[in-house]
């Protein structure tokens, strides 16, 4: 594939003394498209996202055969070079705006921070850029919201503020780590389509991390299924799913069009043939 934005090859991440790999030999590429990563909790999705961003804690040990972004070898970048990439050409939207927004800073300053860091502009211009960006994420009373503190706005609005801050400098790649799962069900759709709209109009690529395989399927061009730190399947349509784990993920998510009455619980033995439960072991 030409025009690749991100190329990940054999990415490994281990925490602490490297006993267990949280990410184990992950490889994929990303062009100007939207790719979803799905998997159960703890499968290593966020760790992949943060490894690309260079945001893992010092205890994380990251290795990769290749980790290229937009012609740059990310593993070779200094911290200072990474700083000029982050928020500028490479952005991360996190799960819960209640925690990812700084509680004691007014919204306006938090959005303007991106402009200040990368736009090479005065504080006043940065504030203006922030206001314009808040407008783009459909915040109505912009002047008031700029002055408000995070605890004074709703979760949905908080996530739109987060999106505004992260997309302000039109990054090449946006990593959205479960951007809607902390939000009220009623606003998830609108936040997601807003994100889609902005990503498309900026011409950015999107790496969307989620639990919800159906949501990802309806939204992304490709789906990577992760299980225990590995990518077990790479799909373009749900119907192609072969791996029993993927199927169990699909079955576990209720489909609005074909409602099921009881959620199916993944049957681990079917995709973990090597795993023979010991006597008395409970999962």
């Amino acid at each position: 594939m030409e025009n690749q934005i991100l190329e990940v090859s054999d990415l490994n991440v281990a925490f602490g003394r490297g006993s267990v790999r949280a990410v184990d030999g992950v490889s994929f590429t990303l062009g100007a498209d939207k790719v979803g990563i799905v998997g159960e909790s703890g499968s290593g999705k966020s760790t992949v996202g943060r490894a690309i961003m260079g945001l893992l804690p010092p205890s994380a040990h990251v290795t990769a055969r290749r980790l290229h972004f937009d012609g740059l070898d990310l593993l070779d970048q200094t911290e200072r070079q990474m700083q000029s990439l982050r928020g500028n050409r490479l952005s991360l939207i996190m799960q819960d705006p209640r925690y990812s927004l700084n509680p004691v800073l007014p919204i306006g300053r938090q959005v303007a921070e991106t402009a200040l860091l990368h736009g090479n502009m005065s504080r006043k211009d940065a504030t203006q850029a922030a206001a314009a960006m808040l407008e783009r994420v459909q915040i109505r009373d912009v002047a008031r919201v700029m002055r408000a503190y995070p605890h004074q706005i709703s979760g949905g609005m908080g996530q739109r503020v987060m999106i505004a801050a992260m997309l302000l400098s039109a990054p090449r790649l946006v990593i959205a780590d479960e951007p809607t799962s902390a939000l009220d069900v009623s606003v998830r759709g609108e936040v997601l389509s807003l994100l889609d709209e902005l990503v498309t109009s900026n011409g950015s690529s999107l790496l969307l991390i989620s639990h919800d395989i159906r949501m990802v399927a309806s939204f992304c061009d490709r789906i990577l299924v992760m299980y225990k730190g590995r990518i077990v399947e790479n799909l373009t349509r749900l119907e192609e799913a072969r791996h029993p784990y993927t199927r169990s993920l699909i079955a576990a998510m209720p489909d609005a069009r074909h409602p099921v009455h009881r959620l199916r619980v993944p049957d681990r033995e079917s995709f973990e043939p090597s795993h023979t439960p010991l006597a008395g072991e409970t999962l």
């Binding site: 943060r50 961003m53 945001l55 911290e79 200072r80 700083q83 000029s84 990439l85 982050r86 928020g87 500028n88 952005s91 991360l92 996190m94 799960q95 819960d96 925690y99 990812s100 927004l101 700084n102 509680p103 004691v104 800073l105 921070e113 991106t114 860091l117 990368h118 987060m162 801050a165 992260m166």
Partner: peptide, 26 residues
């Protein structure tokens, strides 16, 4: 350990800025 620090770093803020503009006010 807070997410907002990760978010600030994701915006490209460096150590000094994180300290002065994010942690100290908190």
């Amino acid at each position: 350990n807070q997410d907002y620090v990760v978010a600030a770093r994701a915006k490209g803020a460096g150590q000094a800025r994180i300290l002065m503009h994010h942690i100290l006010p908190n």
